[in-house]
């Protein structure tokens, strides 16, 4: 009896802790620092080098407030004008499984900050880093790769894609940039 209670309490506890992480609203957090993020894991010498994951960065895509703020800033910084609601326009779609410069949150972060040669402007110094992380987390949610229980279903706007809560995670692959694109 007691052991069963204990087990269920533990289970409950775990769910709840996940809840804490999801629900925190950090206004004052220092942005995770990253260095050495390459858009590709292809490396001369034969051993691929996976992206160095930053656990603090990963929290952004599990936190509802950050994702929601990311959605706001995605609009504020005109990301939508090139990527629409994820379907793409001048820029490539963000809701599919193709990532020219890598789909990990760290890679998305560096794509936003550094810019990419075929038209993606660099936002370095224009968007404070914490907000870039938030935008990156929101971008991850478009392809279903942010935590499902942390994403908003829709915004108060014209109906666009499927509700983000319903988008299945898209298996990602990293691709080097195509020529001429």
């Amino acid at each position: 009896m007691y052991s069963r209670c204990l087990a269920s309490l533990l289970l409950l506890g775990c769910t709840l802790l996940a809840g804490c992480e999801r629900e925190t609203r950090a206004f004052h957090e220092e942005a995770p620092a990253i260095n050495d993020v390459s858009p590709t894991d292809f490396r001369a010498g034969g051993t691929p080098r996976p992206v160095a994951k930053n656990p603090q960065a990963a929290e952004y895509e599990r936190n509802a407030f950050h994702i929601s703020e990311g959605k706001r800033y995605y609009e504020w910084y005109n990301c939508y004008s090139c990527h629409a609601a994820g379907g793409g326009d001048i820029g490539p779609p963000l809701m599919d499984d193709e990532w020219r410069y890598g789909g990990e949150i760290e890679q998305i972060f560096s794509s936003i900050v550094e810019g990419r040669p075929n038209g993606m402007p660099s936002f370095a110094g224009r968007i404070p880093e914490q907000q870039v992380w938030e935008i990156a987390a929101y971008v991850r949610s478009m392809s279903g790769n942010a935590a499902k229980d942390a994403v908003p279903s829709r915004g108060d706007e014209i109906k666009t894609t499927k509700p983000l809560t319903q988008v299945p995670p898209t298996p990602e692959r990293s691709e080097p940039p195509r020529s001429n694109r």
């Binding site: 994820g86 379907g87 793409g88 326009d89 779609p93 193709e98």
Partner: peptide, 16 residues
Amino acid sequence: SGELDERDPTAAKGFG
């Protein structure tokens, strides 16, 4: 040509 995603009706400023 842009391989845009038609699951987003606002893609390509509405052509999606």
